[in-house]
Design a protein around this nucleic acid. Structure first.
Lengths: 203, 203
DNA sequence: AGGCCCATGTAATCTGTTACATGATTCC
DNA sequence: GGAATCATGTAACAGATTACATGGGCCT
């Protein structure tokens, strides 16, 4: 039950509509969580029912009306409670890693193409994060902002997002280099035969 | 539909039983994917039904019998096909980031405790990854292994896992430092009032 | 005697994804 | 005239987590 809290956390900084939330959680940034529009609209409805957020209608002329949501006192209390509970470690779950894991047995050309694409995607996100951090800092130095800036939460999660994407980019580039080098000195890929394991043998 | 392929990828290197697979996917390493035992047993059953893996019974005396699974030619073909499909980017989804995002509004003591715990967890995984990499390399240098080592796939995913956990550790430590410094120069946390947004106003 | 490791699952529930739906306005 | 943006959903399905179940052997 954490999307719930991710939405609350996102609404702490500013009042947002469902649509604006989807922008933050979808492509673009998604610093600290990711979710699709459908999930967000559903979650907003539940949160409002439970009194953790309050919505107010904003009538617009040129565009459809929208509802802006704000965290209530009860919502803040719920976040506080959540923040105090123990946190389970998070795990990697990435299709690209699965593909690279099988690099010895599949076509590396396809892998190289996908690693290159991912590196470019990571680079783009790095740019977005850099810009976001600069905006938050304004004219202050990072040192200064970390000590006294308001919104240290968003700043820190953004730093994690940045480092994560830098890690992605660097790894993808390295993997591409390695796979290319190996292809130039290529021998045909051979299916390795599995040794027969004896009952109760040493593991 | 990617757990399927993660299991296939894990079985490429060696024949494993369901139980042994759970060890690889659960705590411990989980270099490139994570899953619980129940999912794995279910997935193994489906994969066998579909002819992508083949199991053979190993009778044991001192322990319960087990079934070891091996990827079939059809399974390898399926992985090959999977590796050639486009890969969607993966996103962060971590409760700890959600908590840190709300750092300006919740008790930072609890956050510091959890960040410290996570840093320790990351450190432990770093140790495991280091050891795994050393084992794969044997007496060869990393340069040498990257160029000519067998099992480059597992080596590369392990490198990503290592970098990811180093990123976690570094970020957690930094966040702890920042939050501590701010606490020492502490003023009471104030609930910021949200500015009222006008219809069709600039966004 | 109690707890952990091996070994394998079922069942219920919760979460996330894919596909589909609607309708006005603004930009090219 | 067609695509993109704003704005909000419903329905069906796939994937993941939590809880529960079983049973022998080994270690302290």
């Amino acid at each position: 039950m954490a999307l719930r809290h991710a939405v609350l956390a996102a609404l702490l900084d500013e009042e947002l509509s469902g649509y604006q939330l989807t922008k933050a959680f979808d492509l673009g940034v998604a610093n600290f969580w990711h979710a699709l529009p459908q999930q967000l609209y559903a979650e907003l409805a539940k949160l409002e029912q439970d009194g953790l957020i309050a919505g107010r209608e904003v009538v617009q002329e040129a565009r459809p009306n929208k509802r802006l949501f704000q965290v209530t006192e009860a919502g803040l209390a719920e976040l506080e409670r959540f923040a105090a509970t123990a946190t389970k470690p998070s795990f990697i779950r990435d299709d690209l890693l699965v593909k690279v894991q099988s690099a010895d047995h599949v076509d590396t050309g396809a892998l190289i193409a996908q690693l290159t694409e991912r590196a470019a995607f990571a680079e783009a996100k790095i740019g977005l994060f850099d810009e976001l951090l600069r905006k938050m800092r304004g004219d202050r130095s990072e040192q200064e902002y970390l000590r006294h800036g308001e919104r240290i939460g968003p700043y820190l999660t953004c730093l994690r997002g940045l480092a994560f994407e830098q890690g992605n980019r660097d790894w993808c580039e390295r993997a591409v280099t390695v796979l290319r080098e190996r292809r130039s000195g290529s021998r045909p890929a051979v299916r390795t035969t599995v040794a027969t394991q004896q009952p109760d043998g040493p593991e």
